[in-house]
Computed example of a mutant assay.
Amino acid sequence: MNRNYILLLLFLVVSCTKDLELSYEKSDQTMVVNCLFSENEAWKVTLTRVKSYRDQSDTYIDDASVLIVPENNDTIHLVYFKDGIYGSDEKPISGVQYRLVVRDSKGNTITAKSSIPLEPIISDIKPSTQRTTYFSNANLSDYTVMPLSFRISANDSANFVRFCFFAFNTKWGYTRYMVTKETISELRKLDFPEAYLGELEKLIGVSMSSYVYFTVIREISEKYELPSNGLGIAVSKLKEKKVTTRYEDSFQSGYLFSNSIGFNNVSKDIWNVLGEYSAEKELTLFVTDVPVLNKGSQTNFKEEYWLEVTGMSEDYYKYEKSYIKQVNNLDNPFASVIEVYSNLTNGVGIFAGYNSQMIHYHDY
């Protein structure tokens, strides 16, 4: 009796089994456009698809038609390079209104408009060597800073700007470093792993600042789990080269603050000051004293202080503010979701013009 009951129960269990088809969220196929343009760079537009939580890498779009349509001029047809990048040898021109038109193979069309704004006019720059303490509301911390005052003039009814600070060390800034064949040969004699040397061989002839090279080689050393002294040995085998040009990667960024109305740091960011103005204004920014502190009493080199001034279109300004807020909220599980601003029709991303100038305002 018990045996028959068990057989009946097994039959019912097996006969009631049903395969379930679980539905998964399909990847969003919305196009993502990234194009921030200025007079200094040729046209470059990057196209990808929106990533889902299951996507491990970007989905590049390589079969789209990408057009730049200037007002009162011929259309510029961008060609595909690689990794979703479309480009042209032509450069944007300040003051010209441009329209972006992107069509993918599925018949979707994205459009946007923007132009490069007029360059902000900076005058009456007055740096100070007097240190003061600045309390940042961004992260509730005190910083030792030095005031920097100047005037900024308006070119339009509404003007948008971003300030960043950089220092250039004349002792190390004019020294470049390279991996050479001799570098590889010497490290091979010291029994460095061949896979490690293979990574370094990709960098042969590439000129970088000491800071950038140290960072790159450290990452490779950690990847192959080299002993603690391996990094120092590898860096010591780089070839030095003296130059007379200030390369971009030789500038060191520093924190920057403002207490002027309409000009401030966004969220917890301490590296950028953004602002909007419609008339000439006198501003006071506060820059880091760290380069001067590190220099101390040494007199065989200078710490050059530079202010980067970026004139932004309104779309770029809104995009930048929302992007900084989103990045600074990533580590806060209780923060509200920040949607990054987009000025595209039928897509997401940014198409916006800007101009940039570097002002060398003082040597310490």
Rank of each mutant, 00 (worst) to 15 (best):
Tyr224Pro: 06
Arg218Ala: 12
Lys241Tyr: 13
Asp289Leu: 02
Tyr305Phe: 14
Lys318Pro: 04
Thr48Asn: 03
Ser38Trp: 01
Phe168Thr: 04
Phe165Lys: 13
Gly254Glu: 10
Ser141Ile: 09
Tyr211Asp: 15
Thr245Met: 13
Tyr316Thr: 05
Tyr174Asp: 00
Lys202Thr: 14
Val266Arg: 11
Thr345Ser: 12
Val66Asn: 06
Pro92Thr: 03
Phe301Pro: 00
Ser297Phe: 14
Leu344Asp: 02
Leu148Glu: 02
Ser128Asp: 12
Glu182Gln: 12
Lys91His: 07
Lys51Tyr: 02
Asp104Val: 04
Phe165Arg: 13
Glu219Thr: 09
Leu100Glu: 01
Trp172Met: 10
Lys106Ala: 11
Leu307Ala: 08
Thr133Phe: 03
Lys281Glu: 13
Glu339Cys: 11
Gly262Glu: 06
Val161Arg: 09
Ile338Ser: 07
Ser209Glu: 09
Tyr361Pro: 07
Asn272Phe: 13
Val66Leu: 04
Asn332Glu: 03
Phe334Trp: 10
Ser23Pro: 01
Gly311Phe: 01
Gly205Gln: 09
Leu344Met: 03
Tyr60Arg: 05
Ser141Leu: 10
Val212Ser: 11
Arg3Phe: 15
Ala352Cys: 02
Val161Asp: 01
Asn229Leu: 08
Ile6Lys: 10
Glu314Tyr: 07
Glu240His: 12
Ala335Lys: 03
Lys237Gln: 14
Tyr247Gly: 00
Asp124Gly: 06
Val96Gly: 03
Thr48Pro: 01
Gln29Leu: 12
Phe163Arg: 05
Lys202Ile: 13
Met31His: 05
Ser258Ala: 12
Leu187Gly: 07
Gly311Ser: 01
Glu41Leu: 06
Phe37Arg: 02
Gly262Ile: 06
Trp271Tyr: 15
Asp142Trp: 12
Ser207Pro: 06
Val235Thr: 05
His362Ser: 15
Leu344Val: 03
Leu100Met: 00
Gly205Trp: 04
Ile68Gly: 02
Val348Ile: 13
Asp289Ala: 13
Thr175Lys: 15
Glu314Lys: 15
Gln97Pro: 08
Lys126Met: 11
Lys239His: 14
Val340Ala: 02
Tyr319Asp: 11
Thr75Ser: 07
Pro193Leu: 02
Asn4Arg: 14
Glu225Lys: 12
Asn73Glu: 12
Lys106Pro: 03
Ser88His: 01
Cys164Leu: 13
Val309Glu: 08
Tyr255Ile: 14
Asn2Val: 09
Glu303Ser: 08
Glu240Arg: 14
Val273Leu: 05
